[in-house]
Design a protein around this nucleic acid. Structure first.
Lengths: 188, 188, 188, 188
DNA sequence: CATGAATGAGTATTCATTCAT
DNA sequence: AATGAATGAATACTCATTCAT
């Protein structure tokens, strides 16, 4: 599809540039050149620079969420295996793309759009549900699964955010999963 | 001291404004007005808008680090108590000040200045040392204290970053401390 | 040609304004308004205010040089007639345009560029060649035509530079030509 | 005298800096530092930057004028010797100091102050008077000594203005004097 | 007299956005 | 649909000048 193709090219270009520089240093003319489209074309697909910026973040986040939903929906996996898999995905996410992105600058108030709130809520709810299932099965012990759900992405962000080149995904995934499961295992 | 006073006023004003708006929406003229100094005066103390921005972040971070060092140096506290105290400080940090700040955006490549690297390294080393001490005392079990040290700030960031108004510091602190200690307790 | 047209309009506007006021009193916004273009458009054609300034001087000088080359290349004119014609052109040049320009301010060190050095060298070489031809023909006598070539523009600058309104071009041209030819005539 | 000393130091510093850079690139703080006085001190002796600038030009010009008056008043010199001496002074003037000065830019409308007009008029009148005396003695022939007087400074400016390092004052003085005298000698 | 920290009016420059082609 | 030349609102930064010490 011609339309989608062009839109994708723009998003790819923007993702690349926003990952390297903060918002206000990325020029739309650079985005256009990188995407090999005219400057005006950007406005056929996105209403403003901010729009484009959030479209990039959104796509990234959406991809992640889709993968996590797949894991959460897999009936073959026990809660601990699901959590381990999610930890792995999050590690990959933060390490590969969002890492730079986040670090370099969520420049604008991540829009209080319902879209975003809902998206984030979905992510947390998904993790929370797994924890609750584990608790119900007597596998986990947690007084506040809602809170614990918030720890997990943050924890991996902390692990992967800096010095990404020195980070071994597999090692981090394994260690972090073990830490999380340990944290959920104990009688508290 | 007159000099420091003025510098402090500027930093306070800038911290306040940067906390409410993204970098490129904060006008230096607003900073000057809020600080009740002339626009040119800003440049007597900071070389550029970016400079000022990072000075704000830096001061915040520095204050946190100082408090954490106090905890780490307290001989009356066992490793678990130290970790709990640190978790509390981090919660307060992310919730109160950095919350807004961070959320709005680390706008610019957190400068690869050695200053920053060292500062962050100090923070992690401090936490890592406590974990190692706990391991040595048989109180904790951890294959990679370096990595675990990275989890802790991230974890609290995740917990406190969004919906700060709905977050109960004490509850978060207690729960997070318990989660962390649990994670370090188990035989792994 | 649309492009050239716009560039010309900008140069015309700038020439006019720079002729009336010193560099630092000419606002780019005035140039833009006078040229009936947007302020940003100036930067499509010139890199900076300085750039624009020198482009104006350069165009002026270039026009003069072109006319002088025409005179120098005219085979119908003997050296003395050529010199007289050149004196006339220089008088017109200094009186009409460059007069104000020069007086009001050669603000910036112009000569760094090779462009300028070469241009000036061309002008002098052209005059020098005519003198040498006259000397070869036994019409002039001069031990150092290179030096004499330098006198001629300066001499007319001196004559026309001040109180331009009181200056009669034709009278100056005639008198100056006569003075120069006299100076070259004698046995020295 | 302390006062005069300080004023002289400021003028020297300013002369040096204005000679190297155009008006708007010379910072008063640089002038102050070079003169080893406080920035505020400048305003004890000069009312503004422009004032200082013109004071520099004025002092330069005044020194020259004084020397020329000495020559003009010397009863031992015939008009041709006086003109030769004046040519020499002008060459030195343009070569040494004013050269740079002028070249870099008379930035501002050389103030229409009567001071300046009078000063310049004095210079020209002085030369004109010599020419007229020569004409009266039958030594020179000139239809318009007023005009010729204007040529002489300009002519030397042209000779000395560019590539000052390559210019041999003595050679220029001799050649220029000869040229001028030649120009005045002929029956026209 | 001398100072230099403080000032803020003044302006060059940038860059998201538009629209004629 | 696609373009990119043209735009001008928006803003960081400079530097002559002042005045409390």
């Amino acid at each position: 599809m011609e339309y989608t193709d062009k839109q994708e090219r723009i998003l790819d270009a923007a993702a690349d540039l926003f990952a390297r520089q903060p918002f206000h240093k990325v020029l739309l003319s650079d985005v256009a050149r990188t995407a090999a489209v005219g400057k005006g074309t950007l406005y056929l697909y996105f209403n403003s620079k901010e729009d484009l910026y959030f479209a990039v973040l959104y796509r990234e986040f959406d991809n992640l969420l889709t993968r996590l939903k797949g894991i959460a929906a897999d009936p073959a996996l026990a809660p601990d295996a699901q959590l381990s898999a999610i930890v792995g995905e999050l590690a990959r996410h933060f390490l590969k793309k969002a890492a730079n992105m986040d670090m370099q600058g969520v420049v604008l108030t991540c829009p209080s759009t319902d879209d975003w709130r809902l998206r984030r809520a979905e992510l947390l709810a998904l993790i929370e549900a797994i924890i609750r299932r584990g608790v119900a099965m007597g596998m986990f012990h947690d007084q506040d699964p809602r809170l614990t759900a918030k720890y997990i992405p943050g924890l991996l962000r902390g692990a992967c955010h800096f010095e990404p080149q020195d980070t071994d995904i597999e090692a981090v995934s394994r260690h972090a999963a073990s830490f999380v499961l340990q944290g959920l295992a104990g009688k508290d």
